[in-house]
Design a protein around this nucleic acid. Structure first.
Lengths: 336, 336
DNA sequence: CTGAAAGCGCTAACAA
DNA sequence: TTGTTAGCGCTTTCAG
């Protein structure tokens, strides 16, 4: 690869002049330098620039699992936005492990300008680790602690859970089950709590045996639904906290021959591909993954700008709206 | 951030000694240096190392769209494998645009050691661009030209297409439709051609009006299926070239009330989430996306090693097996 | 407007 | 085994 010396030599100027032109300054022999750059196919070396400037035009993106369509879409949103500013993204999966996050960020942090993360834990150690990074951080989808000193993007989990509960109540359900994800996470906690509270305000309690709490995974959803079926407590509807658990639950329900919505109404957080093609198209609370990515990227890019200009700003919490997409998996409970 | 000087000073040695310890050499004051590193939380600066060594422990991964579950899973496979060797990945989406690939690689190439790419085109210019990079390249899923001077990982497209054709033939179908993706790509071309050839060998021709060729997208699948339905040529089965087109086609078929497999048998390349929960669980040719990622990563890591050791090796073509997963979307044609 | 030169943090010759 | 030093490619003073 050609370097700045080659360009300077060919254009008959010094490397300083080339560098100046590259950073937008006016120079005499602009044409000659431009010509040399084009002929040599010169590209400034990113490592050298990064070393010199301490800026890398790179964002670290840490998600629990890039193979999960929701996170993949989120990443796409981030990528779209930062690309327009000449930034690139380094992607890593944490498998919901704090230790993996720490490991990967440790090896990454001095090569990036900022971090976008869907943290595995809401713990103090996560908060501390991120703060110690000393670089702009945006939390996506989940928070860490009560007052994180980071920007934060998430969706209206409370509103979604409330809509879900009200939808089921309005159809007449009174005995309802719930499958919730990790309570160590913001969405896990808020969706669970608000759903229960909304029911409670209407005088409906969810029994302990109708409550399943576990990982945000397909396999947990599968197991939870199986247990519910086996317990046979007479629930007429179930609310599931995210798409992967929902897919697992649907699998178990299908395997057990539980009719939806005939015998059980089904409602979950997160839309997913083909939800509308299922025998009973699933009613969902859908959220805008791409827009979340855009928002996160915008926040980060603004912070990076602030670093240059020395501007100080409060941490921002950006909350995006969710929508209740009514399809056909919820109906009035069978009058038995 | 602490640098190597700080560590050296604190440990009472020279920076060279610290550097040596870091690269595994034996030194006298090992304990002191280790202590200093731990206390200061020292991490070697990646840019400096990259600049000095020309090695970055980073792989560029270019896919058409990271939000597509197949590519996301592929990326996960690559990530898993390279991570174990201390490498990280920079991910970018090309939107099936050669110009986007060129753009993004141009800005990236001097910061990475190798490139894994699902190229948008099989064109000469793609081949040339990748060769000009002067770094190890592995092509995934698609090739460029007849004899690419790169490593290549793909699945047994021919075998899959043949199995698909034979499956439909064995059920008795004789009037069959096909929806195929971009013929500029290896899988688009091979799946299309081999499917047709296999039918042809059995004396079955696919009519031009039953043949749809377009982009590998959901929207093209939707449109193609709509046209087929409208044309009403009497096909009893349809083969779709990948998962995104298949999802689009299923949407149209569903909207038009076409019963599967009652009125139309449906078979496609690529498995997808919930395929088994559809009213008529879809029979598919499934392929191992994670394993493809692993294979690609292994090839790249081996090439990077070769660079160090100076070893020369032939380019490898790794072909992974596919499987026919029979569910219930294919049946004998209705005797009309 | 321009060039010479220092230095970002690191590794690898070289000399001890 | 160790320390000194040059230099990877770049930006940015400092002089002119």
């Amino acid at each position: 690869m050609a370097n700045i010396h080659d360009v300077a030599q060919r254009a008959g100027v010094s490397i300083a002049t080339v560098s100046r032109m590259l950073s937008g300054e006016n120079i005499r022999n602009r044409a000659a330098v431009e010509g040399a750059i084009a002929e040599l196919g010169y590209r400034p070396n990113a490592s050298a620039r990064g070393l010199r400037l301490g800026r890398h035009h790179t964002i670290a993106v840490i998600v629990p699992d890039i193979a999960n369509p929701y996170f993949a879409t989120l990443v796409r949103g981030i990528e779209e936005r930062v690309m327009t500013k000449g930034f690139r993204i380094i992607v890593a999966s944490s498998d919901e492990q704090f230790t993996a996050e720490r490991e990967v960020l440790g090896g990454l942090i001095d090569a990036v300008d900022a971090v976008a993360i869907v943290p595995a834990e809401a713990s103090d150690r996560t908060h501390r680790m991120l703060a110690d990074l000393g670089k702009p951080v945006v939390l996506i989808d989940r928070t860490v602690g009560d007052d994180p000193e980071f920007d934060l993007v998430h969706v209206d989990n409370a509103g979604g859970a409330r809509m879900a509960a009200e939808h089921l109540l309005s159809l007449g359900h009174r005995r309802i089950g719930i499958i919730s994800g990790r309570q160590e996470t913001l969405p896990g906690q808020v969706r669970h709590k608000v759903f229960l509270d909304t029911l409670s305000s209407a005088g409906v309690q969810v029994e302990p045996e109708d409550t399943k709490i576990g990982e945000f995974t397909r396999s947990f959803g599968e197991r939870a639904a199986q247990e519910m079926i086996a317990a046979n407590t007479g629930i007429t509807a179930v609310f599931v906290g995210n798409n992967t658990m929902a897919q697992g639950a649907l699998l178990s329900l299908h395997a057990a021959g539980v009719g939806i919505p005939g015998r059980l109404s089904f409602l979950c957080f997160d839309d997913f591909d083909l939800a509308e093609l299922l025998p009973s198209p699933v009613t969902v609370i859908s959220r805008p993954a791409i827009a979340e990515g855009h928002a996160a990227a915008d926040l980060l890019l603004a912070r990076i700008d602030d670093l240059e200009t020395g501007r100080q700003r409060k941490f921002m919490h950006k909350v995006l709206p969710v929508a209740l997409t009514v399809r056909q998996s919820c109906a009035a409970p069978a009058t038995s």
